[in-house]
Amino acid sequence: MYNFDKIVNRKNTNCYKWDSLTAKYEGVDDIIPMGIADMDFEVCTEIEQAFKERIKHPVYGYSLDVNKELAPIIYDRYKKKGYDIKLDDIVIGTGVVYIINLIIRTFTKVGDKIVLPTPYYTPFGTVIENNDRIILPCKMKLVDGIYKMDLESIENQIDEKTTMFIFCNPHNPTGRIFDEEEMLEVVDFCQRHNLLIISDEIHSDFTLTKSFQPIININEFAKNNTFTVSSCTKTYNLAGLKVAFCFISNPQLRELYSKAAKHTGLGSVNVFGIEAIKATYLKGQQWEKEMLEYIKENRDYVLDFFAEKLPNIKVNPSEGTYVLWIDFTKSGKNVEEIQNILINECKVELNDGRIYGGYVGFGRMNIALPRCCLIEACDRIYSVFK
């Protein structure tokens, strides 16, 4: 049994979630940060032990080709998850966002348009714009409380400059796990318009209420035109180690990507990233199982709490991920002031919905924290919004 109720003091560890609070909110103390998507749980002891064993060797020099050592481990893990991949499809990289950045730079041109369903994970938009590409937003529609793709809404905006589609499943920030039928619609849309697909599936272990299927399994077009990016770091709370991987079934695309990775150095992995993949996928299964159960219980607590005590604040019933998408627009408060109210009155930090594509009055809540802290945060929100 692992102890997810334990409170870990992360202050003064150069922790972005905790150590940035003073600078961001000067004069406001005792904030519970529930924005940045890493966990406030200790890593499993098996991972910690693997790092300690590596530290015993006093040299941390350059590594051999990490693909040869790590790809078979990743392959076994993802074949068990149902991925239709081959060993050669796997390429290791520095991190999910770094890999996405490299794919965009390699396979699109300056001025190209990239379809991005909204709300979207903020770094997707940042990477597109920082590379002088153009976001083509595709606003998802809310159907019976569930976010769904609305591809028809952008059909007349697709032109020869539209070259790529960024898909995120499970979806960040809404928590959707897309059905096979929905993914087929995305794939058909991309095939019709000759779009490459980036599929961020880093949250695919977080199947809270339904099963997950990778988009590359949909059909041959998806398999041959998709870059699937993932990592062990989200599931095992190792984001600071910067290690990830990409599945590229099309050999021509894989060769071009690999050349670009060598030129930029983004195919390299740090020493402890290597140990992370080995330790998590070979020894971390029990911790993962218990962590997922704890996250499910946290999710259910928040859903029940808001439904009973704050019914005008709508919490999207996340199917995957450990973040919840919350709609405060009917809370009775000025929607422009929601973030200020949360910080200054509730002393709870959620990520502001505006950074996910302009969703004023929304917030993203990270529920990967000890239950007592989650309960305290909900109580604080209730005391102000009741």
Rank of each mutant, 00 (worst) to 15 (best):
Y382G: 00
T226L: 00
L136P: 05
F221K: 09
H57D: 15
E69R: 15
S231N: 02
K80D: 03
D379W: 03
R77K: 12
C138Y: 04
I154R: 09
E155M: 14
N237P: 04
Y257I: 09
Y75T: 09
V302H: 02
Q252F: 10
V229G: 00
R299E: 11
R176A: 11
E255Q: 15
D89E: 12
I177M: 02
K11W: 10
K109M: 11
F221N: 09
L195V: 10
M164R: 05
V143H: 04
F245Y: 12
Y62E: 13
E293A: 05
R77C: 07
L324G: 00
L238H: 05
R192E: 08
K161Q: 14
N194E: 12
Q285L: 15
F189D: 05
K56A: 10
K289V: 11
G61C: 08
Y322V: 03
G320E: 13
R364L: 12
G267Y: 04
N344W: 00
K24G: 00
L116C: 06
L303N: 03
N298W: 05
H203T: 10
R380W: 07
K289C: 11
S318M: 13
K68H: 15
N344C: 04
R10E: 10
L310T: 01
R299S: 01
T233D: 00
F41G: 03
L208I: 13
P137S: 11
M39H: 07
G332Q: 07
I74W: 08
I341C: 01
K80L: 11
V115F: 02
S383R: 11
L350T: 10
I31V: 10
K262W: 02
M149I: 09
A244W: 01
T280H: 10
K289H: 15
S268L: 12
N351V: 05
I338F: 13
L324F: 08
G82E: 06
K113R: 14
Y2G: 04
C44Y: 15
I216E: 05
Y356N: 07
K262F: 07
R10P: 04
E345A: 03
Q191T: 03
N219V: 14
I177C: 03
I218C: 01
N14H: 10
G61D: 14
L241P: 03
A23D: 14
K11S: 10
H263S: 15
T106A: 03
D159C: 07
T126N: 07
Q49G: 14
G27P: 06
G320F: 10
D205R: 00
P72L: 11
D188G: 04
V187I: 13
F178R: 01
L87P: 01
K113I: 15
K113N: 13
T126D: 09
V229S: 04
M140T: 08
D89G: 12
K234S: 09
I99R: 02
Y301H: 05
V8G: 03
I277E: 00
L256R: 15
